[in-house]
Design a protein around this nucleic acid. Sequence first.
DNA 1: CATGTACCGTACTGTACGGTATGATTATGA
DNA 2: TCATAATCATACCGTACAGTACGGTACATG
Lengths: 205, 205
Amino acid sequence: MRRKTEAKRDAILDAATQEFTERGYDGASMSAIVARIGGSKQTLYGYFPSKDDLFVEVMMRVVERQVAASYAEMKAGPDVAESLRRYGVHYLKVRQSPDLVGLVRLAYGESGRSDIGRLLYRDGRMKGVEDIATFLATAMKEGALREADPKIAALHYVALLDAELAEPVTMRVREPASDAEVAEVVGRAVDVFLAAYGRRDGDPG
Amino acid sequence: MRRKTEAKRDAILDAATQEFTERGYDGASMSAIVARIGGSKQTLYGYFPSKDDLFVEVMMRVVERQVAASYAEMKAGPDVAESLRRYGVHYLKVRQSPDLVGLVRLAYGESGRSDIGRLLYRDGRMKGVEDIATFLATAMKEGALREADPKIAALHYVALLDAELAEPVTMRVREPASDAEVAEVVGRAVDVFLAAYGRRDGDPG
DNA sequence: CATGTACCGTACTGTACGGTATGATTATGA
DNA sequence: TCATAATCATACCGTACAGTACGGTACATG
């Protein structure tokens, strides 16, 4: 006999990801998804029992692939500023990518009705913030940063990273920033962050 | 003869605002909007020629009423920290209200396809940021804050205000914060902001 | 090679919705 | 008062789409 292949499943998910991020949940059509890969609706429904199920799988996969990968870049090191900077640059690049922008639009748009936003926030954003918080906690303990609530500090840092670009890009008020501009934006965020959370000159330690 | 009344128009817009913020653009139904106020579809179409037009009017009105009003709270004064704090408290209260949360979800959700997000960002957020920037510029000139790009400083401040609450509330990961908690959140944001943008001890001026 | 299963294509069902049509009723202003 | 326009109730049209049915074909495995 013949078996359902993982390749086919992935192809469907790829097409669905495109369709959902481009048209939103309601705007996306199951027939259109099928049309993107060529094949039959019956095959699609053989892999995913409903539009809702397909949607959830799409969201989960994007989160795992992109968001998680982005946050994993955090590296502990002696130079806190440099670690923050490197993380920030990677984060903003991913944050501006069409896929993630589409995902964020979806998550916000659906967050009023479904639990997908919740889920995405927990597995994506929150996990990343916790990673930063862990890094910051270590830096605080080692005396590289002043003592403070590491969770809140992490939220502040991510917010500062998002400050200049996230909303305008999502709202299509401006284009994604170039690498050079990203570097500047991150630099300003790090400056503000360290002014608040860095050890003050003359502090003991 | 009889005239179309502003009261009726408002009633329709109220019902439509509810429907849109609860169900999203696609999820909202013109018949359901009519059902909320009791009346006829024909009457609705007498005031608004299409769902799109109605939607735009709804969005404009919410922006004018809430966002603009919120940002207008900015008061110039000798005590910069106090001004920032007062503004922050007012801003976060509005930002957490069901109406504005629904609006933000809509704006994000539709930003991929329509221009409504763009429009909303310009008339809402951007206008507010500019107001803060103006305030900050004055404070900088008067020596209450260090010299810096006021626009970026304003973006940083708003981002810091949003850091702890905006996304979790929008994603329904947590309930809106109480007044007491809002005060704490704003306090932390102001502390970080002033650490970065306040005059350093010993600076001239 | 035979058979069970995936796959394709297409047509179909039921439903929901935006927008229109119609005709009766009610309030308003000249 | 009386004409005029707004309002109401309801039925209707066209369309789009989620999901199903069905008949036929390709393919892997026993």
